[in-house]
Design a protein around this nucleic acid. Structure first.
Length: 431
RNA sequence: UCCUCGGUAGCUCAACGGUAGAGCGGUCGGCUGUUAACCGAUUGGUUGUUGGUUCGAGUCCAGCCCGAGGAGCCA
């Protein structure tokens, strides 16, 4: 009985008789010879069946097997330059677990709508396999870095009583006769938990009922939100750049095969090392004007502006001190100029745009009370939040990093919807 | 919500207002080293939907539905 091994570690079994359990990716045959490409989740390997060297039942199974049938293949592992991947399996036995019907996704080019309609099957494709593995690596890198730098994972609720920011559209649901909303950020809650733990982060799904139809938007997406007591704007940027650089270098070192499948220019990722350039909103306006996209002071950047700024540098760029009026109510104000907020966005190169938004939070009670009034927010829902300014308020900062935008950037993808297993976009909630 | 583009075979796409086609997939056959193999045969259609113009509509017109790209908003 041959040992069951995974294709990902097939190189350790050259010269051995092994069993692979997986699915048929593709088949080519020429008379007395059949090439069966088998994948098992860890990789893909070419198996070769010679009619003379295999029992008739196995030969017949190999002849009958269809694309994406589940199969068990046993044979001798050997290195062979002619095989994709460098190794192949000289079959001695081949068994079909379930014979698949005509597979919808033929090995050819397809339209996005068709692929999304078959997302549950599309995930088996090499490109999607690679993206999901990069996603897992990005998430693990984030958690490793934060866990190793004194941050405690503190999860925040998904069902919330009111808008965290009050500016964007929320998904409304019913909570035992009361209105409740799906969370669009855990930040406010983590401003509370830093009082207990110092440095925290939450990591979970967030929901925005915005009718956004662009390649950078999802209705449901994942976000990591670190929050830090006794850290100012400058300290916040230092943490952000260390984290982002660590993510990029981890992907570069651990996901070579995936990046190759995705045809990603690895040099672009290798360049993502600290320090990142820091420019003010006012500096950014100068760059934009020189690039022929002038912007009125006080206006927020649109997608083309972000692209210009991102492409102006070979690594991510911090843009800090935005006009207070264009930012959320909880942003601290710049003492040197109260019209400015101590906010900072991190804009990725290559047109990937904003991947982090954050900054220093207002910790002055009177300022917050005034902002809540100006933004016409229901004060009673924020009493607990105001308490944080009454009992041991400290300067503090935090940010939110969008997982899917980061994965999209790492993978060099055109559209964010490929970075999450089952994307929720405007007009699609199937499968 | 607004702007632009699109909807024809399972999929990707053709088709001057005049008999709806090709490639891929599927099926059958051939080939001992294939690389989305190749060669031959074969299968496959309520042209998104409703109405209109016309001798005749996949094609022209109007409404509706669905999707894509972008804007706004944001991670």
């Amino acid at each position: 009985m041959a040992e069951h091994v995974t294709i990902g570690r097939i190189g350790e079994h050259v010269g051995q008789q092994v069993t692979i359990k997986g699915w048929l990716y593709n088949k080519r045959d020429s008379g007395r010879l059949q090439f069966l490409l088998v994948r098992d989740g860890t990789g893909t390997i070419q198996s070769v069946a010679f009619k003379k060297e295999i029992d008739p039942a196995s030969w017949e199974a190999a002849a009958q097997v269809t694309q994406e049938s589940s199969v068990i293949a046993t044979g001798l592992v050997r290195a062979d330059d002619r095989a994709p991947g460098g190794y192949e399996l000289g079959l001695t036995a081949f068994e079909i677990v379930q014979l698949a019907g005509e597979y919808p996704i033929a090995l050819k080019s397809h339209g996005v709508d068709f692929l999304m309609e078959n997302r549950h099957l599309w995930l088996r494709a090499p490109s999607q396999w690679a993206v999901m593995r990069v996603r897992a690596t990005v998430i693990r890198a984030i958690r490793d870095w934060l866990d190793d730098h004194g941050f405690l994972l503190v999860d925040t609720p998904i069902l919330t009583p009111a808008a965290c920011e009050g500016t964007t559209t929320l998904f409304e649901t019913e909570y035992f006769g009361e209105k409740a909303y799906l969370s669009q950020s855990g930040q406010l809650y983590n401003e509370a938990t830093i009082g207990a733990f110092g440095r925290v982060y939450c990591f979970g799904p967030t929901f925005r009922a915005e009718k956004s139809k662009t390649r950078r938007h999802l209705i449901e997406f994942w976000m990591v939100e670190p929050e830090m007591a006794y850290v100012d704007l400058a300290g916040c940027m230092e943490v952000e750049e260390q984290l982002v650089a660590y993510i990029a270098q981890t992907v570069v070192s651990r996901c070579r095969p995936e990046l190759e499948i995705l045809e990603r220019d690895v040099a672009k990722l290798e360049a993502i090392v600290a320090p990142f350039p820091r420019i003010s909103y006012d500096d950014a306006l100068v760059i934009l004007a020189e690039a022929g996209e002038p912007l009125e002071w006080g206006d927020d950047f649109g997608a083309p502006h972000e692209t210009i700024l991102g492409n102006h540098f070979d690594r991510p760029v911090f843009v800090h001190r935005y006009p207070a009026r264009s930012k959320a109510f909880y942003m601290a104000e710049d003492e040197a100029n109260p019209e400015l907020s101590l906010s900072v966005d991190l804009i990725a190169p290559e047109g990937y745009g904003e991947i982090i938004g954050g900054g220093q939070r207002a910790h002055d009670l009177a300022l917050l009370e005034r902002r809540i009034e100006e933004h016409k927010l229901p004060r009673e829902a924020f009493e607990w939040y105001l308490d944080l300014r009454r009992y041991g308020a400290v300067p503090h900062s935090g940010f939110g990093l969008g997982i899917e935008r980061t994965v999209s950037w790492m993978c060099g993808l055109h559209h964010i919807r490929e970075t999450i297993p089952f994307p929720r976009t405007m007009g699609r909630i199937y499968p």
